[in-house]
């Protein structure tokens, strides 16, 4: 099995849902339509042997039309092929289906993504914050919450001897 075969299989099975294919980086990357992500992951797991969910995380591109991204890394342990899937969501409707039924490991990874990016995984059994405090009312990894700039000059640090 190689990347060509995977692309061909997915194109056949999901003709309208594979939005973008990129083979230029370190592994095969595919952008998947939001509605089909669970079916694609399930198909990859059952038919193409991608039985290992390496990681699931969020990304935020504030400039894009669909700014919120979810990145899945899957691993076929038998043929040793890694795969990266991306789904992009809009700010107004950050909903996506959960993969917990397919991979139990997705439970906390999705909670972490919700915690930091505010992406809501529908049907998730327990979608609450995981690392931040419960009463936090924003999602801190989004780009609109910048860390303090270390080069700023308007800060008064005289009490700290600087």
């Amino acid at each position: 099995m190689d990347n060509e075969f995977i692309i061909q299989q997915l194109r056949e099975k999901f003709p309208n849902d594979v939005l973008k294919i990129d083979t230029s980086s370190d592994m095969l990357m595919m952008e998947i339509a939001k509605s089909a992500i669970c079916d694609v992951v399930l198909f990859l797991k059952n038919e193409l042997n991608f039985i290992y969910l390496t990681s699931l995380c969020g990304v935020h591109y504030p400039e894009q039309a669909l700014p919120l991204g979810v990145v899945y890394h899957l691993h076929n342990l038998q043929d040793n092929i890694r795969l990266r899937l991306k789904v992009f969501l809009s700010d107004d409707d950050p909903h996506i289906d959960t993969c917990v039924e397919i991979f139990s490991a997705a439970n906390w990874m999705e909670r972490e993504t919700f915690d930091f990016y505010g992406i809501i995984f529908d049907e998730h059994p327990n979608l609450i914050r995981i690392l931040n405090v419960e009463y936090m009312d924003y999602h801190p990894m989004r780009k609109e919450y910048p860390l303090e700039d270390s080069t700023r000059t308007d800060k008064d640090d005289k009490f700290f001897g600087r």
Partner: peptide, 8 residues
């Protein structure tokens, strides 16, 4: 800002 009702 959205207020989330988190419950353990």
């Amino acid at each position: 800002m959205q207020q989330f009702e988190a419950e353990h």
